[in-house]
Design a protein around this nucleic acid. Structure first.
Length: 781
RNA sequence: GUCCCCGUAGUCCAAUCGGCAGAGACACCCGGCUUAAACCCGGCACAGUGUGGGUUCAAAUCCCACCGGGGACACCA
């Protein structure tokens, strides 16, 4: 049972309260069921908030981080989280991050980590590069600032090599992860099938390849578009009469923000480059444009435009008065409607493809292209390689030395960890270059290969590296010889139940899945998916919106605990609704929880029978209620419906209260059985109250180690059940029948009922539906 | 714009396979306890399942459309 580990920014808030209450219920339940449960915790301790706080308050980021961790740790202990405190890890500790470096070098050796000079996402506020996954709608995921493009040499991890496996292994997660998360991951990877098609450009030696999912429409390609910000566009424009116009356009494109670019309904713009491409299937000369609606970093950065059957191409064709050729038959004519047709018609005006459907035409066209050597089938992905370099201080140093002679040299394993230099004398403020670059004593080293003068890589790793494998480290968190002992990981992992917010649906979960697959290929783990089951708990809202410092609607856990107590808060969180739903704090009633806890606790004091009293001698009705509660409790915990679990315990408390006051009385052994059951079931949610009850009942501590009660199946069988007798769907009579009554017996019984006989007088029966033992429906003509 | 999820008492939420709409709680109201109140104990009451169709002996549950709320993606060729 693993909770997503926290980031140590300030004290815990109500969001943590919900997540950890849920995780703790699961962990405590399985302990009571007799399982050996690993319920670890650690801190995701590297990252920008610490660094920014350090700059602002002029303290060491480590000092700030560890102070916050201590505060959170104290709150967690108070909150009664059953964490294994011997296995705690902090990702900012060299004993942890040295294994980030080790993994990185292993990947470097395998060609999975590489350095590349290219246009990258640059956050103007954080002054660092960002991974694709960290750019949300053109803004920095962390600070919501504008993201621009910048050309830099950066380190990447080859996650695209794993795209197919990341998709295909999702089959294992079907039904165990939220459907929504699986869908988001699929969309993010964005695999599509199509073809590469080679177009000769007049006056250029090399043909240019385009990617298309609709090679069948190649006869309808009437123009050609290259991404304005691609190298190809600049090259094609250079030396043409259009060069000046192109440069002006490019400047405009660069100046427009990512936000503008994403705006929907935006008019298509572009520049004719005064050059022509040759359509490989019909030899037609088609004009080449540069435009910003084609993305430089998807596919090949160039497209064949088929305006009749692609809306974007059609919009562009209409704006630039370009011809539109229909090659898929349809009732509507895109030239008139302005709407591109994408339905499954029959191919026309397409030479050898005429008369074929889309499904037939695509493979046929690929054959034609392959015969002529001008194209081939292709798979394309939206997923890009994971850029992990960051130009900030508070992260894992990249263990590479740059030597003039030897190039990129891995730091030898016996020199790991490459520790961060002291912040003393360093200026951490964001300035576009890693602060590590100014730690001269640290940067200048002898090349470990040739001994010559060399420089350390001054970037640090994305903190998502830290969280991509921490759950593996829990199995062996003190290991100083290796990231972990594979045998220990095999013993505990994969994580049976992972709990955390849906905000990590893509980033963290995708990276962790990738990392585990790499570890699998390295022979370190014997599984390919890190988290067997995933629960995304909802958010805790205040007055309809997410709690945040800026809104000023933050509810601090510490204060709530002082007012209401730990158990009441845990209970309120769990009882407020299904765990995946958002909770509005305004609708939560800790006082109601307190009332219930007091009510449950009072039961323990009322029991007068001795410890060990034989319940089989007790009141059968109460025993049935008890065992039904146990059974339902199991079902509800195991299907993660903790709110219903609580309702069942409340039900049992009510039944017991009644039994004591007006039923069998407090001395009945069934009362003891019921109250002990309440204590044990309640202990997963409210451990303090349950412990008090356990002691009042005369038991030795601790209820957390008591066994979950065993259900007596004979007590689950009802003596009789109510059968509803309907005529034409309306209830006319109710019968008390044995639960194992036969269909025929029940029908006979129903037909013999005086009410039914009366109601059927003068009626003709068409059919009788019998569902023993619950229902009989008599249908009339 | 496309896709996905959700609409059940005043409120939060339950309801194995389609089979008596109500488990639990909040709030309200009424009794009991109390000099009185709080606490506590007990009880009453409250919806026919967003709307309109369809399938079925039978629909909160399955299908279609619409309305309302939430979310994801958004020039991915």
């Amino acid at each position: 049972m693993c909770d997503m580990f926290p980031y140590p920014s300030g004290d815990l808030h109500m969001g943590h309260a919900e997540a950890y209450a849920i995780g703790d219920v699961i962990a405590r339940y399985w302990v009571l069921k007799g399982f050996n449960v690993l319920h670890p915790i650690g801190w995701d301790a590297f990252g920008l908030p610490a660094e920014n706080a350090a700059i602002k308050n002029n303290v060491d980021p480590g000092t700030w981080t560890y102070a916050n961790i201590e505060q959170q740790k104290a709150s967690m202990r108070n909150y009664a989280c059953s964490f294994d405190w011997d296995r705690v890890l902090y990702t900012c500790d060299p004993t942890y991050y040295r294994w980030n470096q080790w993994f990185f070098l292993e990947m470097f050796k395998r060609g999975l980590a590489y350095r590349k000079y290219s246009a990258v996402n640059w956050c103007t506020q954080c002054q660092t590069v960002l991974a694709n996954e960290q750019v949300v709608a053109g803004l920095c995921e962390r600070c919501d600032s504008q993201v621009t493009k910048k050309k830099l040499a950066q380190w990447y991890l080859r996650i695209t090599d794993y795209a197919d496996r990341l998709l295909e292994d999702m089959d294992q997660l079907e039904g165990k992860w939220p459907e929504k998360v699986l869908l988001m991951q699929r969309n993010w990877i964005g695999r599509s099938q199509g073809a590469h098609v080679q177009f000769v450009i007049e006056g250029r030696e090399e043909p240019v390849s385009v990617y298309t999912t609709r090679p069948d429409t190649l006869f309808g390609a009437t123009f050609f578009v290259v991404a304005a910000d691609s190298d190809l566009a600049a090259e094609l424009a250079s030396g043409t009469p259009a060069e000046a116009e192109f440069n002006a356009y490019l400047d405009k494109v660069k100046a427009s923000s990512e936000m503008d670019r994403l705006e929907s309904g935006r008019e298509k713009t572009g520049v004719f480059l005064e050059r022509y491409a040759i359509n490989p299937v019909n030899g037609e000369k088609i004009p080449v444009y540069a435009a910003d609606y084609v993305l430089a970093d998807y596919g090949t950065g160039a497209i064949m435009a088929v305006p009749a059957h692609d809306q974007r191409d059609l919009d562009f064709a209409r704006a630039f008065k370009l011809p539109v050729t229909v090659v898929v038959d349809s009732d509507e004519d895109p030239r008139e409607t302005g709407i591109a047709t994408t339905d499954n018609g029959v191919l026309v005006n397409s030479g050898p493809l005429d008369g074929l459907t889309k499904a037939e035409a695509i493979p046929r066209m690929i054959e034609v292209l392959e015969e002529r050597g001008t194209g081939s089938a292709a798979t394309n992905y939206r997923l890009r390689d994971w850029l992990i370099s960051r130009q900030r201080y508070w992260g894992t140093p990249i263990p590479i030395i740059h030597c003039e002679k030897c190039g990129e040299v891995a730091v030898p394993e016996d020199q790991l960890p490459v520790e961060l230099p002291s912040t003393e004398g360093l200026d951490l403020s964001p300035k576009g270059v890693s602060p590590l670059a100014t730690a001269h004593d640290w940067v200048n080293v002898a090349c470990s290969n040739c001994g010559g003068p060399a420089l350390r890589d001054t970037d640090t790793m994305d903190t998502f590296v830290d969280s991509s494998w921490y759950f593996l480290r829990y199995a062996d968190s003190q290991n100083s010889e290796a990231a972990f002992d594979p045998k220990k990981v095999a013993e505990w992992l994969p994580v049976d139940q992972y709990v955390g917010g849906v905000t990590h649906a893509i980033l963290h979960l995708l990276y962790a899945r990738f990392w585990v697959k790499v570890a699998h290929d390295m022979g370190l783990v014997d599984f390919v998916e890190p988290f067997t089951r995933l629960l995304n708990q909802g958010m805790v809202l205040k007055d309809g919106s997410a709690m945040s410092k800026s809104r000023g609607n933050l509810v601090r856990l510490t204060e709530e605990l002082e007012i209401n107590g730990v158990d009441a808060i845990r209970l309120s969180m769990v009882f407020a609704g299904p765990p995946e739903d958002d909770i509005d704090w305004a609708e939560v009633s800790p006082s109601g929880s307190k009332k219930f806890l007091a009510r449950a606790w009072r039961l323990a004091g009322d029991v007068t029978s001795e410890v060990g009293a034989d319940p089989t001698q007790g009141d059968q009705q109460l025993r049935k209620a008890t065992h039904k509660a146990i059974r339902d409790g199991e079902l509800n915990v195991e299907s993660l419906r903790f709110n219903v679990l609580v309702a069942r315990v409340m039900e049992l408390v009510n039944a017991t209260r009644k039994a004591i006051d007006t039923g069998c009385g407090p001395a009945d052994p069934a009362v003891r059985e019921a109250v002990e059951t309440v204590a044990i079931m309640l202990s997963v949610v409210c451990p303090y109250t349950a412990e008090e009850m356990w002691m009042l009942l005369g038991h030795e501590p601790t209820v957390a180690r008591a066994a979950w009660p065993t259900v007596d199946p004979s007590l689950l069988v009802e003596d009789s059940v109510t059968c509803v007798v309907q005529i034409a769907g309306k209830i006319r009579d109710k019968l008390q029948v044995s639960p194992d009554i036969s269909q025929a017996e029940l029908e006979a019984l129903a037909m013999a009922s005086t009410e039914i006989i009366d109601a059927l007088t003068g009626q003709e029966i068409r059919m009788v539906v019998v569902r023993a033992p619950k229902l009989v429906n008599i249908v009339l003509k």
